[in-house]
Design a protein around this nucleic acid. Structure first.
Length: 336
RNA sequence: AACGGAAAGUAGAU
């Protein structure tokens, strides 16, 4: 049973869910870990229906779920914002008296927050006997995701008052909260805390900082963060190009686009989207068309629906309404 | 042997 469960986990972590399920079907003996491993695998890959289906099958066979099983099931529900299904799982958790579990509590907060039900999320949060940094982050991220930047930042401060030290995830959530409401001063303060906590060289924190400053109106500070950074990857550069686009600074965007290639980095789909956005904001139709071609011809990147959308935006903004219409009609995708 | 907070950081329109 141990070997079988490990095999399922291994195949799942190699993204080979079919093989994981095949192993599962062939096992002569299964315990709660075996079931939970496969349910977790589906939940993590966003296959909520499969996870819930397995749970029903598990119950039919009389196998009792444990904390881990429930956490994975809740995650499956929150992944597709299925509050009704989540509530159904929640009821069973209450029946078993498992709501007090730290992981289950945090995942429940995450579920309600992701679904935008802040009333239930808050009530639950308040009655949990144990909370850690992930519990707080789940609520903060939920508020930030739904555009409640002020509430998110307030919680972030409250968390510190409760003696909890933010980690990378919490900092990124806090920075995103600042971005969403252009809270420049809060952003600067959080930046100082990041330095104090030694996270400034983190790649993800770095691009979040660039994004935050640009969205808070300071392309200058975004450039300062970029210049001071010691590690940069394609996301760092793309965040910078996105910032230039937001500030309608096409020439600077182009300079970053060229420099990133000079240091040996390949632009990806998002990089091109940032660049197209820069062209669009600057009204540079010809340049935009050049880059649209270049992404396939020079970098082997097939334009996706969002790239076509961006081109339609570019043409439409510049007054080429007919051309934009033609583009939408010839779309190799279903338009959204 | 299985589990929680980041769409794990960057992009369009509104």
């Amino acid at each position: 049973v141990f070997v079988g469960s490990s095999l399922i986990d291994m195949y799942a972590k190699c993204k080979r869910l079919d093989d994981a399920h095949r192993i599962f079907n062939r096992l002569p003996k299964r315990n709660v870990v075996t079931w939970s491993a496969l349910i977790a695998a589906y939940a993590q890959r966003g296959c909520a229906e499969e996870a819930l289906q397995l749970f029903k099958q598990m119950q039919q066979e009389g196998m009792q779920p444990n904390q881990v099983t429930f956490v994975s099931l809740l995650k499956a529900c929150s992944g597709i914002a299925a509050q009704d299904r989540g509530k159904w799982i929640h009821d069973q958790i209450i029946e078993k008296g498992l709501e007090v579990d730290l992981y289950i509590g945090s995942t429940l907060v995450d579920l309600y927050a992701k679904c935008g039900d802040f009333k239930d999320a808050q009530v639950l949060f308040d009655r949990l006997p144990r909370r850690d940094i992930a519990t707080w982050s789940a609520l903060i991220a939920g508020y930030a995701k739904h555009g409640y930047g002020h509430e998110a930042l307030q919680l972030f401060q409250q968390m510190a008052q409760n003696g909890l030290v933010p980690d990378r995830v919490t900092f990124i959530c806090a920075l995103q909260s600042c971005s969403s409401i252009a809270a420049h001063e809060h952003g600067k303060q959080i930046h100082m805390q990041i330095i104090k906590n030694g996270f400034e060289s983190d790649l993800r924190i770095g691009s979040s900082l660039i994004d935050m400053y640009a969205k808070c109106g300071s392309l200058e500070n975004a450039c300062v963060v970029f210049d001071r950074s010691t590690k940069r990857n394609v996301v760092t550069w793309s965040a910078m190009i996105a910032g230039c686009a937001l500030h309608s600074n096409y020439s600077l965007a182009l300079r970053f686009f060229e420099d990133m290639q000079r240091v040996g980095l390949e632009p990806n789909c998002v990089t091109y989207l940032c660049l197209l956005s820069a062209c669009s904001h600057a009204g540079l139709v010809e340049e935009g068309c050049v880059y649209f071609k270049m992404m396939r011809e020079d970098h082997g990147l097939a334009p996706t629906l969002v790239h076509y959308n961006s081109m339609a935006d570019l043409l439409g903004r510049a007054g080429f309404v007919n051309e934009a219409e033609d583009l939408v009609e010839c779309l190799p995708f279903r338009p959204d």
